Simulated scan of single mutants.
Amino acid sequence: MGSKEEKSIHSLDQLQVPTTLDKFIEELPERYVEGQINKEIEEQIDIEWNAFQNDLKKKEPTFRKKVVIFSLSLAAAFGLFIGSAFVSPAMAEIASKIPYLNLLFESEQKPVIDEIKEALDGKGYKWDGLGVSVQPREVSVMIVGTDKYYNQVKSEVEDLIKDILKSRNYNAYDVKVSKAPVMEEPTAEEKKESEQYHKIYKIVEEVLQKYGYNSLGQRNGISDELIEFELPKTESRIEEIKKQVRDRLKQKGFDEFSIKVYTFNPQKREREGRWMPIVSTISDGLTAKAEYKVKLVGYTNKFDYLPISIETTLSASDTDSEKIVEAIEETVQDYLHSEKVRNIIKNDQYEINIYSNKGKKLN
C-alpha cells in the first residue's frame, strides 16, 4: 500500500525551453494561437483526447463508499500536450517527462460546464438543468419556454455546446437538448412549508454558530418531527447543543422536535478533504482516455488506509487486459509519487484496486 520506487528523471537543462516549466505551460495556449505548434496535431488530438466531466457530487456520509463522478474541469492547453508531437523535439521531450495526471491536476482552466453556462447566458437563452455526466457521456440542458421557443433555439443551443466541446477537443460527449417540463405554481400550503423549513434551518444554524460551527454538516435534514445535523465525535457538548436547539425552537413557537446528531472522525474528514481533488484528477484523467477503458473511480474513507477503486470495462476475453491494467496502475502511481501530490498526501497509506466489468480484481 502506498509504496513504489520512484523513477529517475533526467535533467532537462539542455532542452531549448523556457527556464521554468510553469512559464512554459502558461505560454502554451498563446504559442498555439501564434502557430508555433503544428496545426496537424489537432487531428490527432481529436482522436486521442476524450472528454472530461464535472458533476461534482455532494459527499456522502464518511463511512459509505463514494462513487466519484466529476465534471469537466481540465485544461485545453494540456490537451495539446497529451498524445501529440510538437514542432520542437525539446517540447516533445519535456512533455514525456511530466506524469499525465499531473498535467491535469495543475490545470486552472475554467470547467467546461461554466463556459457553457456563460455562453448560454451571453446569448440570452432561457435554460435550466445544465449537466455534464460520464455515465452516459453526455452534456444535457433543458430549454425553458413554449414549444415554439424550444423549436426555434434547439439547434442553436446544440451547435453552441458542440462548438465549445470541439474547441477543447472533447470529442467523446453527446449533446442532449430537451424541453423543460412546465412547473406548476406551488400551492399556499407548499409555500408555507418551505418558509417553515428555512426558519427552522436558520435557528439551528444560529445555535451551532455559537458553538463554533458554520453549518449543519454533510448529514443534515429537517422533517415534520426530526431535525438532523452533524458534529465531530470530539465534541463534548452534544447534549447541551441539542438542548439549546430545542429551547430556541420553543422560543420561536415551534413544536417539539426529535433531534439526531451524527458524529464524524475529524482526522478522517480532514484526510478526505485532501484526497478529494486528487481522486477527482484520477477519475477525470482515466475516464478521458479511451485506451484505459475506465468506467468509474471511487474510494472509501472508512479504514485507516484509503482504498481507491477503479472500475473498468475489461472482460475475461480481453487479450490486452494485463497490459491495460499495468498502464493504469503506472499512470496513477506516477501521479501519486510526484512531489506536489506527495506533499498533499503526506504519510497517508492508500491502495489501488482495479476491477473488471464483473467486479473481479485485476491487480
Rank of each mutant, 00 (worst) to 15 (best):
I143K: 00
R168V: 01
G129R: 12
Q53I: 10
F63V: 06
A90F: 12
D159Y: 06
R271T: 15
Y32L: 14
V207T: 04
I113V: 12
K268A: 14
K57N: 06
S223F: 07
N343L: 11
N220Y: 12
A51V: 02
R168Y: 09
K179I: 06
F254K: 06
T187R: 04
D318R: 10
R168H: 13
P232Q: 06
G212H: 03
L208V: 03
E42P: 02
L104V: 08
W127A: 08
L208N: 03
K360I: 13
Q152D: 13
K202S: 02
K97L: 15
D46M: 13
L21W: 05
I328E: 07
L226K: 07
K243Q: 15
E322G: 02
D284N: 15
D147L: 08
L21S: 00
T146D: 07
Q267I: 15
Y170K: 07
N353H: 15
P89C: 12
E189F: 03
E48D: 12
Q152S: 06
K176F: 06
K97E: 15
R237D: 13
E158P: 03
K260H: 12
V279H: 10
A290E: 12
A85M: 13
L362E: 01
L12G: 01
P186E: 09
T319W: 05
E34R: 15
Q109R: 02
Y355T: 07
A288V: 05
D334P: 06
V297N: 05
A290K: 13
G145W: 04
